[in-house]
């Protein structure tokens, strides 16, 4: 990301803040991590955050991610405990319709017997859907509240990102978790030998082994990377456009914001759905018999 020394002086919507700085600020995270001198603490500037390298936690997106995923699951559990087999009330009906939607997708896309796939798909779908939906909240609301609050905790110009899926760490974290499951179920169902032979002796037989590996290993690795980056890319692009609209137009953003939000409403559930379906498909392939 570009250097922006201007961030250190005032980020209010003043004359000294350019659109670029505005967007830059909105795209950075509230970071907690290890400073180069070894002590742990919040980063106060984008530069500080960058210097932390890997040993940094994006507190804002992590908090929203946990809040949304955990909140949804707790809500589901709360509804589920009260659920009856009689005529369901409105909320129960709503949750059941999501449940049945996911369940039927799993039954269509997953040919093997594994009762853990459907809950996985439900978790992924609902979680990503909610994280994506945060993109529809006007871009300055929650960061504005956070910035106001940040003043009291010694965080001037606090960055606060509210859309977890615009953080590649979040999307790749999920997609590589799925990748771990792919490898786990591949080995569980095909054996280590079966899994490796699929990489080595497919598609051209054992005499072309190096060539097969050259094809199959990138194919395997491409799954989680494409899975995570697709979600990230779609949401990042959407968020960026919201920011551009907000940054360039200020108060006059409303109609444009609205129009883009309407388009974006399509992207939000679609990307959650795509992530879920691809997870099902990948895990289905991991359960398929080796001779395939």
């Amino acid at each position: 990301m570009a250097e922006s020394a201007g961030l250190e002086h005032g980020l209010e919507h003043g004359a000294e803040q350019t659109v670029q700085e505005y967007i830059q600020h909105h795209l950075s995270y509230l970071t907690f991590g290890r400073h180069p001198d070894g002590h742990w603490g919040f980063a106060h500037t984008i530069e500080e955050a960058k210097e932390m390298g890997f040993m940094a936690l994006h507190v804002d997106v992590m908090a929203w991610s946990l809040l949304l995923g955990g909140g949804a699951l707790l809500f589901f559990r709360y509804i589920g405990r009260k659920a009856t087999a009689d005529v369901p009330n409105g909320v129960q009906n709503f949750v059941e319709s999501i449940f049945e939607f996911v369940d039927s997708r799993v039954q269509e896309g997953f040919d093997h017997k594994n009762p853990t796939i459907a809950p996985l798909a439900l978790t992924i779908f609902v979680w990503i859907l909610l994280m994506n939906t945060m993109d529809l909240v006007p871009v300055d609301w929650l960061p504005g509240v956070a910035a106001w609050f940040g003043v009291f905790v010694g965080q001037e110009h606090m960055s606060f990102k509210v859309v977890p899926t615009t953080d590649p760490n979040v999307t790749l974290g999920m997609s590589f978790s799925v990748f771990i499951l792919i490898i786990y179920y591949s080995i569980k169902n095909k054996g280590v030998g079966g899994f490796l032979s699929e990489l080595a002796f497919h598609p051209f037989g054992k005499w072309m082994l190096p060539f097969n590996l050259l094809i199959e290993i990138p194919t395997l690795l491409a799954k989680p990377i494409s899975l995570g980056l697709r979600l990230f890319g779609n949401l990042y692009a959407g968020e960026l456009l919201f920011l551009v609209i907000a940054g360039l137009l200020g108060l006059y953003q409303l109609p444009f914001h609205f129009i883009w939000a309407v388009f974006h409403i399509l992207v939000v559930p679609l990307q959650a759905f795509v992530f879920m379906m691809l997870t099902i498909v990948y895990l289905n392939a991991a359960h398929d018999s080796p001779q395939h």
């Binding site: 932390m52 940094a56 936690l57 449940f99 978790t123 790749l172 978790s177």
Partner: peptide, 29 residues
Amino acid sequence: MDITLTIVGQSIAFFVFWWFCQTKVWPLF
């Protein structure tokens, strides 16, 4: 695109949520 500890946190959350959904939520419905 800086990869940070967040990816680990999200992965842990992923498995915890999966476990929770599978044991505490899914059977109810």
